[in-house]
């Protein structure tokens, strides 16, 4: 891992594979109330999805909906203890996540907490031998170079109107 070649620009050669930092096994309720912003997530689709999550917990919407049973599920049991919905973004999506937070704060008048932090991610560099045909030899048996990296992240807590 240590004696890898580094090019002039300081880049490790090879295919770069990024591994997630979300390795923790989440309980079902936590999974249902967390929204992760990707760099490919469009802003509006994130707004809609988060709004949908918030609506599930909104008591005032229960009576207007015909499928009440689906909604009452989110008012009872362990869901009762849920106070906010978590929206997370890291790296280049921080800006998008912040604008999401501001949108829910200023436009839709939710209480939004913003928490900053950093997470660890794993970079994998797979060496590819140019001489060998990639199909022929396959690179899965070559050792990859692993590097840990810290990335800034941001967490929004959008409080439910309960």
């Amino acid at each position: 891992m240590t004696d890898h070649k580094i090019t002039k620009k300081g880049r490790i050669p090879g295919r770069h594979i990024k591994h997630t930092s979300n390795i923790r096994i989440q309980p079902v309720i936590e999974r249902e109330t967390t929204f992760l912003v990707k760099s490919s997530t469009p802003f509006i689709s994130a707004v809609k999805k988060i709004q949908k999550l918030l609506d599930k917990f909104d008591k005032s919407l229960i009576s207007s909906n015909s499928r009440t049973r689906a909604k009452t599920k989110y008012q009872n049991g362990e869901y009762k203890n849920i106070n906010y919905i978590v929206v997370k973004g890291m790296g280049k999506t921080i800006e998008k996540t912040l604008s999401l937070g501001l949108h829910f704060d200023k436009e839709l008048h939710y209480q939004v907490d913003i928490i900053t932090g950093s997470v660890q991610v794993l970079d994998e560099f797979k060496e590819q031998n140019e001489e060998q045909d990639e199909e022929e030899e396959g690179d899965e048996f070559n050792d990859s170079i692993y590097k840990k990296r810290m990335v800034s992240n941001i967490e929004l807590r959008i409080w439910l109107k309960r």
């Binding site: 660890q120 990859s144 840990k148």
Partner: peptide
């Protein structure tokens, strides 16, 4: 008990080879 220590896990992944 699920683990949430990314640092330890990533060290483990790097040492797999």
């Amino acid at each position: 008990k699920p683990s949430s220590d990314t640092n330890e896990y990533f060290d483990f992944v790097s040492s797999l080879s």
